[in-house]
């Protein structure tokens, strides 16, 4: 038996007493293995720290941070809903109360006036100017509409 074979058989806990009787090196290795086995067995009595409390604390911390995250998302969602409620046009109608339609009134017709300045002491006299055209020169066509208050006049110049 070679020393290599002996090593293998030693590690498999097989009987190698014949080789050990003649080989000091293998005998030494066999001693190491035996003492190692005893040392390994004694590890079972060694005190070891526990991690249970660390694990519990970590689970609690993770759970808390998840809760905070959930609340954060809920708050963000609520804020978004509020923003949308205020910003979104309601039912497609324009914002604000409905206003009366604007009515444009034609400015009153100002007839041209002429002021003549007389001598001192005289009362100032005004004279209405004559219209530019005589009514007789214009053909007036009156048209009625659906609205009784609205009448359209066509003025056709001759």
């Amino acid at each position: 038996m070679t020393c290599q074979e002996c090593e293998l058989r030693l590690s498999l806990e097989q009987d190698v007493s014949e080789h050990l009787a003649t080989c000091a090196a293998c005998r030494a290795l066999a001693d190491e293995m035996r003492e190692n086995a005893a040392a390994i067995a004694s590890f079972a009595d060694d005190p070891l720290p526990r991690v249970g409390h660390r694990v519990t604390a970590e689970i609690r911390a993770q759970s808390r941070s998840r809760q905070i995250q959930r609340w954060g998302w809920a708050l963000a969602a609520a804020a978004m809903v509020l923003v949308l409620l205020y910003a979104w046009p309601r039912g497609g109608r324009p914002p604000g109360p409905a206003r009366d339609p604007l009515i444009a009134y034609a400015p009153p017709k100002i007839e041209s006036a002429e002021v003549s300045v007389g001598r001192p002491g005289d009362r100032p006299r005004t004279r209405r100017s004559a219209p530019h055209r005589k009514p007789a020169d214009t053909l007036k066509v009156k048209m009625f509409t659906d609205d009784p208050d609205v009448v359209i006049y066509w003025l056709v110049e001759e």
């Binding site: 590690s11 030494a28 290795l29 190491e32 293995m33 003492e35 190692n36």
Partner: peptide
């Protein structure tokens, strides 16, 4: 497993020796 343990035993014995 048996083979791995066998190798490990020899290695550990030599390491300590």
């Amino acid at each position: 497993v048996r083979s791995q343990i066998s190798i490990a035993r020899v290695k550990l014995a030599k390491y300590v020796r």
